[in-house]
């Protein structure tokens, strides 16, 4: 075999590549497969949270905010427990980010609340003096795209096997059910909000982007 190979540089290179690649895969895969199992308690996003996540992506929040807490005391003091890879099991795509102009948001839901976000998104400098974050007032009037969020969730369920509709996991159901559930969830969010325009919109059956956004931010724990 070797005698045959050493006379044929091309096949020699191919076999060399396969050998090295095989060794690499053997080293990397088992740990990777183990680490990417969902951490106990990790749940897929609800339709409303996913709609907020779409807004997060659309506004390109990740160019200033990371969602990855490194295991250093200086980080865990400020942002909470360091991140585990299994916590991102249902993030498609993940939003780790690599730049922190603003703070990390991996566990923002643990230490900020709906009313703070409402003030902050409307006028960031009203609660954080000197901040460079721009206002996102348009989210109070734009309507969140629940239909796309539902399609997103449904695709994740059908194609990637994300465990919606299972015991202890968020219910997705049909579009009509999901829309109704999202509206219910939006009502619990606006109950803690003060903006009358947003409250009226939700009461009238449409969900402003800010409500989806806050639902998403509150879910980051």
């Amino acid at each position: 075999m070797f005698h045959w190979l050493e006379q044929r540089p091309f096949f020699f290179a191919v076999v060399l590549f396969l050998t090295v690649a095989f060794a690499g895969v053997i080293e990397a895969l088992p740990d990777f497969a183990k680490a990417s199992q969902p951490v106990v308690g990790t749940k897929p996003y609800t339709t409303l949270q996913l709609a907020g996540r779409q807004v997060y992506i659309k506004e390109n929040c990740l160019s200033c905010h990371s969602q990855l807490i490194r295991p250093f005391k200086s980080e865990t003091d400020r942002y909470g427990m360091y991140s585990l890879s299994g916590e991102y099991a249902y993030d498609r795509p993940f939003l780790w980010g690599s730049k922190r102009t603003g703070p990390d948001l991996m566990r923002i839901g643990n230490y900020r609340t709906t009313d703070w976000h409402e003030n902050h998104m409307m006028d960031p400098s009203s609660v954080v003096p000197g901040t460079v974050m721009p206002s996102y007032a348009h989210q109070f009037t734009n309507t969140a795209d629940l239909a796309t969020a539902y399609a997103n969730a449904n695709t994740q369920k059908e194609v990637f096997g994300v465990p919606y509709d299972q015991d202890g996991m968020p219910k997705l159901g049909t579009w009509a059910e999901a829309e109704a559930a999202a509206l219910e969830e939006a009502k619990t969010v606006v109950a803690d909000m003060k903006n009358q325009q947003v409250k009226d919109a939700v009461a009238g059956g449409s969900v402003p982007e800010i409500v989806a956004m806050i639902a998403y931010l509150n879910s980051l724990k």
Binding site: R112, D115, D192
Partner: peptide, 11 residues
């Protein structure tokens, strides 16, 4: 009546 303060347990 003002709003909600999160828990700072462990922090």
């Amino acid at each position: 009546s003002i709003g909600e303060m999160p828990s700072f347990k462990g922090r």
